[in-house]
Simulated scan of single mutants.
Amino acid sequence: MPRPSKRKAAPSADVDLSVSPASKKSRTKQINKVDHLFDRYSNKSMDLIDPAGIESLCTDLGVLHTDIKILMLAWKMKSEKQGYFSKDEWRRGLKCLGVDTLPKLKKSVLGLDQEVMKSGYFEEFYIYAFQYCLTEDMQRSVDIETICELLNIVLGPQFPTQVNLLIEYLKIQNDYRAINQDQWSSFYRFFKEVSFSELESYDSTLAWPVILDTFVEWLKERVNKS
């Protein structure tokens, strides 16, 4: 007579089989290392990394606080307040980068600009750069001076001549004191699609904001005078 087959007991409903104890221990250790690094730069009274802490972090990373890589680091963290990193944002950013020590973070940050450009996420980062400058509730636009600095940092490396000309125009024009997100988005598309050597092909009837129409007129006058 055949013996009845032995069935394995069903796992208890309250036992979590998705993560092994060893994995949990490793994850906890990694979080502790990330938090320890956060504490190194944070303002203890605020439990935030404030501008002074970011300045110290930049020194240790070997980059200036105005470097695009720091803005990209803020983007990786999805930082909501300019000049500050919360602990949750810090954890999110370092997890995204896959790092938990300063040497690893430094190596990752130094390659961020190349990574973002190659990964196809640059446009997403570009929009974030504008939103990061909205420092007040209900703010919808960014002043011209800040926009000029942001253009130089974010688009200057890709389009140096075009950015210099747009910045020159923005500083002398009197129609706009601030730039909204739609206008900001159009600048990047404009640089990609419009050749400055063939401005006659620019079609103002297309969906370009008025500020770019007047910019092109200014460029044409500049060319004619020269």
Rank of each mutant, 00 (worst) to 15 (best):
V99N: 04
A9D: 04
L166I: 06
W90L: 03
C96R: 13
S26D: 14
K220H: 03
S23E: 10
Y41P: 01
Y132E: 11
M77G: 00
D175M: 10
D182P: 02
Y202F: 15
E80C: 13
S79G: 11
E80M: 13
Y188W: 04
L199W: 07
F215R: 12
L97I: 11
F85Y: 15
Y169K: 06
Y121K: 13
P11W: 01
E80W: 02
A52C: 01
L102K: 13
Q139N: 05
I179L: 07
S5M: 02
S119T: 08
T66N: 07
G111K: 07
K78R: 13
V210S: 12
K225N: 08
I172T: 15
S119W: 05
R222N: 14
F85Q: 11
D203T: 04
L155R: 09
R189N: 08
L61T: 15
V210R: 13
P51W: 06
S12Q: 10
A129P: 05
F196P: 04
L110K: 13
I54A: 04
K118L: 13
K6F: 12
Y121D: 15
K104Y: 00
L212C: 08
F130L: 06
S42T: 05
G53V: 02
S56Y: 00
K29D: 12
R3C: 05
L112V: 06
Q30V: 04
L102D: 14
E123R: 15
R140S: 14
V210N: 05
A74E: 01
L102N: 10
G98Q: 08
L212I: 11
K6Y: 03
L57I: 04
